[in-house]
Design a protein around this nucleic acid. Structure first.
Lengths: 163, 163
DNA sequence: TTATCCTTGACTTATACTGACCAAAATTAT
DNA sequence: ATAATTTTGGTCAGTATAAGTCAAGGATAA
């Protein structure tokens, strides 16, 4: 029986999430140094929080600029509240998926207007690139490539938080 | 906690962008000295804005003339066909590209409406996935990962431009 | 105990802005 | 005409500022 552990990372994550909620626009600008000061940590801790919590896989985009007037902007592209749909898609993809199956799935999603033709194109290029690398560069077994394809596909689809 | 203040550079950038919008022709002529006076800065600040914001990689050309009746002309460039755009994009990416650089490029392309936010998200997920695999699964050197990142990015962008 | 997650700090890189000095084109004086 | 002068813009190096990376070690969970 343990209380919800609250690591610094988690606290900062919640802080940023709250700012996002308040802002309505789905984006918020931050100063890395100020944040670090507020939470009494080193600035690079902020990078860790962003990398581990506000990653594109989770539906976030991060923009930043160094130097004078530097900033970090966190953008929430999608609201990952439609867990059901995500679970459903993850189910559809499964642990492993062949190239044909994935193509069929993507065609289907496009027909249902869940993704646009251009989005489908990007996804197919990404999958094919990984396939190519796996085959000719790293000598990955076909089954393992199916596993990796499923991983990538799920990451992409859940990032879009389709609903 | 202070919000990031907008920089002089950004203010001048927006001013010029607005002039471009108003002019409809996709170009505008400026006086460096007048601009500097208007914004209370040294003239070379204008060069900085032009170099950092209206560079070819941002889709602009700048012409100028010194001496009496000198001027600076900012021209917004457009592509006549897909191939031109593909070449342009491939150029921007280059042979190798860091994570930072790629992120900046994608922000830029989104601002120019070459890609949508969702498309950017998918691309970032794909890049990040490859990065992760390269680092922790296959132990690829940082530079080689930059090469692979450039490859993938070019594949995706050219597929979009051609599609 | 082992694997994963978190945290830190030294080092690196990128951006904004200024001012002194340079270069070119037009105007004016000779 | 030609040279001097004036009117523009260009370049570059220096300073200040702020974010990113990476690797090593500590904390926590499985």
């Amino acid at each position: 029986m343990s209380l919800p552990s609250s690591s610094l990372t988690q606290i900062i994550e919640e802080y940023i999430a709250q700012l996002l909620e308040e802002n309505e626009v789905g984006e918020v600008s931050l100063r890395r140094k100020d944040l670090a000061e507020r939470f009494g940590c080193v600035p690079s801790q902020i990078n860790y929080v962003l990398r581990s919590r506000f990653a594109p896989e989770n539906g976030f985009l991060v923009e930043s600029q160094r130097g004078g007037h530097g900033y970090i902007k966190v953008i929430q592209l999608t609201f990952n509240n439609c867990d059901e749909e995500v679970v459903h898609l993850a189910d559809l993809v499964g642990n492993a998926i062949t190239e044909q199956e994935s193509r069929k799935l993507l065609v289907n999603l496009q027909n249902r207007d869940v993704i646009s033709p251009r989005e489908r194109l990007i996804i197919e290029v990404a999958l094919r690139s990984q396939e190519e690398n796996g085959r000719s560069l790293f000598d990955i077994s076909p089954y393992r490539r199916d596993l990796m394809r499923a991983e990538l596909l799920k990451k992409i689809l859940t990032s879009l938080a389709l609903g």
